[in-house]
Simulated scan of single mutants.
Amino acid sequence: MTITKIDSPEIMMSQVSMCYKTNSTEVLALKEVTVNIQKGEFVSLLGPSGCGKTTLLRIMADLLQPTSGEITISGGTAKEARLARKYGIVFQSPVLYDWRKVKKNITLPLEMIGLQKEEREERAERLLELIGLSKFKDQYPWQLSGGMQQRVAIARALAIEPEILLMDEPFSALDEFSRERLNEELLSIWSKVGSTVVFVTHSIPEAVFLSDRVFVLSPHPGRLSKVVNIPLPRPRREEMRNSPEFYQLISDIRQSFEGV
């Protein structure tokens, strides 16, 4: 008899709760959230503002400590994963340094970990090619559009070759046309680098278009109300947004919020 080995999830969170305390009150942001994310998977954390999506992402990144519950990253603790540089993080704002040119912004984390200049240069050039901005490498961030700046931020996060890419509503400040275009570009990048991606969004269409699975969080306090598998074929193309299957998935997720 042949036994098939099933790998453990890369990210495991069990009964995670988060309570913020102030001098006068306590605010329960997350309540007993359990999620398992497989290596190489693209998942979205979806929910309305204030449901704890960003809090959950920050707990994964070891930027916050949960009030209760357990979290395992690649078989170890979140702190061990952070110290081993398993994470790349992209925030809502690109957070680029205006006085450093595009290429220098990308090489910054590599300088911080002491990588040799030749290797820094090689990685930056490769990433610039990947995000389609090679000819803008000597420009300053303020000379780029918002979408181009966010692509630079993604490249910088990928510079350390992370196993896990954590993205906190990276396209929320962009217009709808730019956002949809960058959705496709992100999927193209992901297909080449193979990182596990955890993507925070409050846009149902964006979550459906990008993800293998969508974790739906309820309004405050955030609880995992539903996990939706997205069976749409890859690669995902723009025309898929007009398919009946796409609209049905959006409708199914939207209905999961009713009465919550």
Rank of each mutant, 00 (worst) to 15 (best):
I160H: 12
M60H: 05
G114A: 03
L46F: 04
K117C: 03
F42A: 14
K103F: 13
V260H: 02
L130G: 08
I73R: 00
L166G: 10
V33F: 08
P170C: 12
S256V: 01
C19S: 15
V198N: 06
K104P: 13
E239K: 14
M167Y: 08
M1D: 09
T196H: 08
I204Y: 01
R100N: 07
L182H: 12
N242R: 02
L232H: 14
L64Y: 05
E125W: 07
V43I: 15
M167S: 04
Q92G: 01
S74P: 02
L158C: 13
D212H: 13
L83I: 10
I154K: 02
S203A: 11
N105S: 07
E129A: 11
G146A: 06
M12T: 03
K135H: 13
S172P: 00
S68V: 13
R123C: 00
A153D: 02
L63V: 13
D212V: 13
R234F: 01
H202T: 10
W99A: 14
Q248E: 14
R58I: 04
K79A: 12
A159K: 13
S191P: 12
L174D: 05
V208K: 00
R58W: 06
F246S: 00
I106E: 14
E180D: 14
V102M: 07
P48Y: 04
F246H: 00
M12K: 09
M1K: 11
L56Q: 09
F171T: 12
E41K: 11
S14D: 01
G194S: 09
A153T: 07
D7E: 11
L30M: 14
V33M: 06
G47P: 01
P233E: 08
A159I: 05
P221L: 15
E169M: 05
T107R: 14
F91C: 14
A153P: 08
N36D: 11
M112H: 12
A81R: 07
K104D: 15
V43C: 11
E125M: 10
I106N: 07
R58M: 14
L130H: 06
P141R: 10
T77K: 00
H220Q: 15
R254H: 04
L133P: 08
D252F: 01
T22Y: 13
Y87K: 12
V152C: 11
